[in-house]
Amino acid sequence: MDMLKNLIIIMMTSVLVNNYVLTKFLGICPFLGVSKKTNQAVGMGIAVTFVMLLATAVTWPIQEYVLNAFGLEYLQTIVFILVIAALVQLVEMFLKKSIPALHASLGIYLPLITTNCAVLGVCKNNITDEFGFVESLVSSLGAGLGFLLAMVLFAGVRSRIESSKPPKSFEGVPITLTAAAIVALSFLGFGGIIENLFA
């Protein structure tokens, strides 16, 4: 029971409180780039979730059984990037062959997130937070879902921006960044919920 409670807390933390985009400001590039339309935002969000899970499943054992074993913790970043990049390529090839429909909807986003900092960030944070394997997977799933949530929310905000007329000097990127800042600010409101989740 405690185990389950712990996992729920990890999940909620990485979805809402430590949202990778809106609180840690990782993965801003796709967040701003692919959030113009809701369906694209959903596609990107699902692709990121998928890759985060997969990357964690591979990088955690590498950290534990290769890097820690040889005392090479300082090589973490370079090894993780190497592995994640190769992994995403492999997944893309696999999808293209086996599930063409999924590849068509996900495919264009996969290469984009090869070296997404949010994906690398999740893998590194799982190690820093000293999570076990299952905890790491749950944390990455939460991070991915949090990314998806942020993308979809922001796509909604942006569609409202499109149909409004901001002052001339704010048009385009400035108003988008301002809106992103306000959305991020609103996520601060989740700050206290974890402590009281099971209180």
């Binding site: 590498i62 090589l75 370079i78 190497l82 190769a86």
Partner: peptide, 13 residues
């Protein structure tokens, strides 16, 4: 270590 990991990835791809 890095070379071996890189090679493994390359072979796999």
């Amino acid at each position: 270590v890095v070379t071996v990991i890189g090679l493994l990835c390359a072979v796999m791809l």
